[in-house]
């Protein structure tokens, strides 16, 4: 790679070697990928959402493939924050990348308890608050749709968190910029935009959902235009950095999000069907900057011309 080109970005007080991260729920706990790619090449990775206790998740079927995407209703099955700190984190520390833990709870107290558990772990760069998962009946989702509640949670987490706090926003609200402003005022260090879009798929013979639940979260290339619009709207509204997420599957997609105002991007669903996609995006981004005679990725960020 050309050393004259800098992919480094600064975000939430942290230096990232490049703006390419992997999104929560699509990268396991990171270690599942070590046979496939070098984790140390990534700007960072975001873990599967962690709750206080291990969670069993929703009844199958949990996915339905759609045109250009997929619906999921996993229900946040995870090993729990304690097991993550005990079993995964010590191994992850061996890699030179930022580990961001996604956090989920059914109440504000739940979130705070996860933060306390993770505060004891060594090697976590930031927390990402999941206030936007569409697949659990109570908890995160209502918080994500209510600017005041989102701010209350952010403020309480910020008070005890030992590292920067990102908040992952829901697109399933008419007021994503309101929630963004509200959590910024409450002290959030960055915003992850967006989580999955609520969707449905109907089995026409059984007249029921094709998943174990009535609704699921739509992800994949199909949602990219919506995600881009929301990233731009949020980036224009707040001063804190935005991490763009939504259907990114190539370096060209990543460049679009950076131009729209994202300081970094997270790759989600593409990890499922192209496990090395994050590496391709990093390499492609560097080549693009060279071709465009730019010396730093910073020149791209928010460079959208009206």
């Amino acid at each position: 790679m050309d050393t004259a080109i800098s992919l480094a970005v600064r975000l939430a007080g942290l230096e990232f070697k490049n703006p390419v991260l992997t999104a929560s729920g699509t990268f396991g706990y990171g270690l599942e990928f070590v046979e496939i790619l070098d984790l140390s090449r990534l700007g960072g990775l975001v873990t599967k959402g962690l709750s206080v206790e291990p969670m069993d998740g929703n009844p199958p079927p949990r996915i339905v493939e759609t045109h250009g995407g997929m619906l999921n209703s996993i229900g946040l099955q995870n090993i729990g924050a304690r097991a993550f700190v005990r079993d995964k984190l010590p191994v992850l520390r061996g890699y030179d990348t930022h580990v961001i833990t996604n956090i989920f709870g059914f109440s504000i107290d739940d979130y705070l308890e996860v933060v306390r558990i993770l505060n004891d772990g060594d090697g976590i760069s930031a927390y990402e608050l999941n206030i936007s998962c569409p697949n659990v009946k109570k908890g995160g989702m209502e918080i994500g749709h209510d600017p005041a509640e989102a701010a209350r949670l952010t403020e309480k987490v910020k008070r005890i968190a030992r590292c920067p706090v990102l908040v992952k926003l829901s697109p399933n609200t008419s007021s994503i910029t309101e929630v963004a402003q509200s959590v910024e005022a409450a002290g959030a260090d960055g915003l992850s935009v967006i989580n999955t879009l609520l969707g449905m798929s109907v089995d026409i013979y059984r007249r029921r959902s094709r998943m174990g639940t009535a609704m699921g979260g739509l992800s994949g290339p199909a949602i990219k235009p919506i995600a881009l619009r929301m990233v731009r709207a949020v980036a224009q509204t707040v001063r804190i950095p935005v991490l763009g997420i939504g259907g990114i599957a190539s370096w060209q997609d990543a460049v679009e999000f950076l131009i729209a105002g994202a300081t970094a991007i997270q790759i989600g669903t593409a990890n499922y069907y192209e496990p090395r996609v994050s590496i391709h995006v990093i390499d492609g981004l560097a080549a693009y900057l060279r071709d465009m005679e730019m010396s730093s990725v910073q020149e791209l960020i928010g460079s959208f011309q009206d």
Partner: peptide, 14 residues
Amino acid sequence: APMACGFGICVACV
């Protein structure tokens, strides 16, 4: 079972 990734990431095929 329906699976998105095949190597343990998506947790769909349970």
